[in-house]
């Protein structure tokens, strides 16, 4: 009597990943969605409840393309609010892991390491709240095989903490909130300060 369920479906695979076990317990009350700061402050189409439904119905494509999959910061506000005690960020993380496994990439930016200047001091690794950075040994052009920081694109939330912390500006956000933009806005702020004082 082995199994009425097919272990290759999205829902079964999510359940098999630690954190995703309670997927089927959701009764779709929507508390998570209205509790979520990302949904209320940043991205209106973000919806953890819908993502759970997509996983339950094995809608791989929809789930992997869903912004919810990529934007969760695991703040776990929803976890404390969920009446079913589902660790929702764990479920989202499981979906994300499967999305990455199937070759999907985050549509959002991630931190990039400049390997030509990285000295592997490990500051970014220690300071990253998402444990997305690790030190790896690799061949770097003109520098031989050395240790440098490496960003796991699946875990990086582009918060920029590593960029701010790096002493040699060897890790950065390339698109939104990049260094040049920040310097520009800082300078224009200084200008206005100077004018007003």
């Amino acid at each position: 009597m082995s199994g009425f369920t097919d272990s290759s479906t999205l829902s079964e695979r999510v359940k098999a990943i630690p954190g995703g076990e309670m997927l089927m317990m959701c009764y779709s009350c929507g508390t998570c969605t209205s509790k979520c700061m990302i949904q209320t402050k940043l991205e209106g189409s973000y919806n953890p409840r819908r993502l759970i439904r997509e996983a339950v119905f094995n809608m791989d494509d929809d789930a992997f393309a869903d912004k919810t999959t990529w934007l969760c910061t695991a703040c776990d506000l929803c976890y404390t609010a969920c009446p079913q005690k589902i660790h929702i960020s764990g479920v989202i993380n499981a979906v994300k892991a499967l999305a990455v496994e199937s070759g999907k990439k985050t549509p959002y930016q991630v931190a990039k390491v400049d390997e030509s200047t990285c000295v592997a001091c490990g500051l970014c690794e220690k300071i990253c709240p998402y444990e997305a950075i690790s030190l790896v040994e690799k061949r770097v052009a003109f520098r031989g095989t050395i240790t440098v920081a490496s960003v796991d694109a699946n875990k990086c939330m582009a918060c920029g903490l590593c960029t701010a912390a790096c002493r040699s500006t060897s890790i950065r956000l390339a698109e939104d909130y990049n260094d040049a933009e920040l310097i520009d806005s800082l300078l224009s702020w200084l200008e206005t300060e100077r004018v007003s004082s």
Binding site: C29, T31, T33, S34, Q39, T40, G44, N47, R49, R50
Partner: peptide, 11 residues
Amino acid sequence: IASEDITLGKV
């Protein structure tokens, strides 16, 4: 009261 309207899928 903030809630998600399930049918709309909106908060």
